[in-house]
Design a protein around this nucleic acid. Structure first.
Length: 280
DNA sequence: CGGGGCTCCTGTGCGC
DNA sequence: TGCGCACAGGAGCCCC
């Protein structure tokens, strides 16, 4: 579900509502959502409900941050909860009307609740004693909206890569936060065929790609995210991005630019929509 | 190392 | 109506 604009929308909603509050109770309905880090920094493994509660109860929220598609709920002692929503995760305040159970619900000292719903159960949350040292976060590439995304950066990172540019845009270790929807839209807007080997794209075309990525992500943040399927914001409301995307989800329909029919093909297992007239 | 396939899950929509 | 399969916003892991 959530890519950068969706996660950023949730972050903003939660920051406005939960900063300064203290976690007073935690209901764990699905312990498989809980992961943790081994003391030696080894790979994350499952964490027990008992240990998770012991680590988190009583802590006071200082900030909400986002890095790529990760959401960081920072406490006043610099420890943190780190969420990844994967495909269908939702974080919703004071939700009482869901048709399926929350995996985890956090209760705060003003009686507000934050529930983690996740139909496909790919999402996860873990406690970090120092989030700035989290390997998963430190491995991430640049933030596309903070000024570091430039044509020269792409030229350097794409150098010698033979994989389709669509796959490379999804690599979170290069640019953090782009998912299938925004990769499809950016490549359409930039006029680049998604199959093009990343290393063979000229600098002027990378410039168009940069501009497109930034424009689309910013516009989507402004419209509070893409809500075709399960995505909703922290209040359970749908976003509006789906009303202006022009390629994603439009396979079989005519391209508004040239009238050709949008095609759809698999690239590394992902469904990629493109216009064979507008994208070269 | 880079790239592609498989895997973790559940729900929906389609063709037969 | 029912069944089986393909597919859905992600990303770590494994093998070549």
């Amino acid at each position: 579900m959530p890519e950068l604009p969706e996660v950023e929308t949730i972050r903003r909603d939660l920051e406005k509502n939960l900063v300064t509050l203290t976690i007073t109770h935690i209901q764990v309905n699905d312990p498989s959502a809980l992961t943790g880090i081994l003391p030696d920094g080894g790979p994350r493994r499952k964490c027990s409900s008992r240990q998770f509660k012991k680590q988190v109860l009583g802590r006071k929220v200082s900030r909400f941050l986002r890095r790529g598609k990760y959401l960081i709920l920072e406490f006043t002692d610099q420890t943190a909860l780190i969420f990844h929503l994967r495909m269908t995760g939702q974080l919703i305040l004071d939700e009482k009307q869901k048709t399926y159970n929350a995996r985890i619900t956090f209760c705060f000292n003003n009686r507000q609740t934050l529930s983690f719903y996740d139909q496909r159960r790919f999402g996860e949350v873990w406690y970090a004693s120092n989030w700035k040292n989290e390997p998963d976060l430190n491995r991430l590439g640049i933030e596309p909206l903070n000024g570091s995304l430039t044509p020269e950066f792409l030229k350097d990172k794409f150098k010698n890569r033979t994989a389709p540019v669509h796959s490379v845009l999804l690599n979170q270790h290069l640019i953090a936060g782009i998912g299938n929807i925004y990769a499809v839209e950016s490549l359409f807007q930039a006029g680049i065929l998604p199959f093009t080997p990343a290393g063979r794209i000229s600098l002027p075309r990378l410039e168009r790609l940069c501009t497109a990525i930034k424009a689309i992500l910013s516009k989507s943040v402004k419209h509070r995210g893409y809500s075709m399927n399960t995505y909703v914001d922290a209040f359970g409301r749908r976003g509006g991005t789906q009303h202006f995307t022009v390629a994603y989800g439009n396979e079989g329909k005519p391209c508004a630019e040239c009238g050709a029919i949008f095609q759809k093909k698999k690239i590394s297992g992902r469904g990629v929509v493109y216009c064979s007239q507008c994208q070269k």
